[in-house]
């Protein structure tokens, strides 16, 4: 059935097509150029990214090095869950963190029922939208993004890009040396829904809280600037 359906659908579509060659089509697409992106809200990548994470109802932390990152993670999970445990993917960058220094006890692998906190190391952060990007795979099983109550994400300053076009060019670059990942996830906030009377509620299916830790040389004023941008914009609520 599918074979003849395929043939007839292609025939009908081609009938109303332009008949241009592949090279002509590629040139025509090239001529359309690229789309305008949203303006960055802050004075640099870091402040813009942090501001948008806050606007997406995430919380943020800024740390200078890996040891500070571990301390920040330890503090955060102790404050919220009175625990030192969390689940992290088999990401070599996470494995190399000095966990013992802060007394954090990570379990490396896929989140299981009843485990409240997962930690991911993002591949990219997009300043335009305040999204972090993860690839599915051993380093970050999908359940770790989708099933915990609380999702913590570490991101390197060097992996921030201004907009989605730049994100794709970095992803395309990564694919020249690694296999295409099964899934590429742009995450911009805790799971939410507005399906009941348009009222925004967090924790629809996935995380109720989303905490982003920006690691590296972050300009001193970035966090303050981000907080100032995000503060007045306590939005009224969204749909779906």
């Amino acid at each position: 059935m599918s074979d003849s359906a395929r043939a007839s659908i292609f025939a009908r579509i081609r009938y109303s097509g332009s008949g241009a060659s592949a090279a002509e089509i590629a040139a025509a697409r090239e001529a359309l150029g690229r789309a305008p992106a949203a303006n960055l809200p802050g004075s640099d990548l870091c402040s813009s990214f942090l501001a948008n994470v806050l606007l997406n109802r995430g919380t943020v932390d800024v740390v200078g090095n890996r040891s500070e990152a571990v301390t920040a993670v330890g503090k955060y999970i102790y404050q919220h869950y009175r625990t030192h445990r969390l689940v992290a993917g088999n990401d070599p960058r996470l494995a190399a963190m000095p966990w013992r220094d802060a007394g954090v006890l990570p379990r490396f692998g896929e989140l299981e029922a009843g485990e409240p906190v997962a930690l991911s190391y993002a591949r990219l952060g997009v300043a335009e939208t305040g999204a972090v990007v993860t690839f599915t795979g051993k380093a970050n099983p999908a359940a770790n993004n989708l099933l915990p109550e609380n999702h913590i994400v570490v991101i390197d300053v060097a992996d921030l890009v201004p907009d989605m076009e730049m994100a794709w060019s970095r992803i395309a670059h990564a694919m020249t040396t690694e296999q295409r990942p099964r899934g590429i996830n742009f995450i911009a906030g805790p799971s939410s829904t507005g399906d009941i009377e348009g009222k925004l509620v967090y924790g629809a299916h996935g995380p109720r809280h989303w905490h982003v830790i920006l690691l590296g040389e972050v300009p001193q004023a970035a966090l303050g600037e981000a907080q100032a941008i995000a503060a007045p914009a306590a939005t009224t609520g969204e749909l779906d």
Partner: peptide, 30 residues
């Protein structure tokens, strides 16, 4: 950029995902 702003007024939805196919050989999920 247009879809989400037009639909819900957000700049981006919480999850925007791109899926390519079944689990890879070295994957543990999917």
């Amino acid at each position: 950029r247009l879809l989400v702003r037009s639909a819900t007024g957000q700049a981006q939805t919480c999850y925007t995902s791109f899926y390519s196919g079944p689990r890879r050989e070295q994957d543990i999920d999917g």
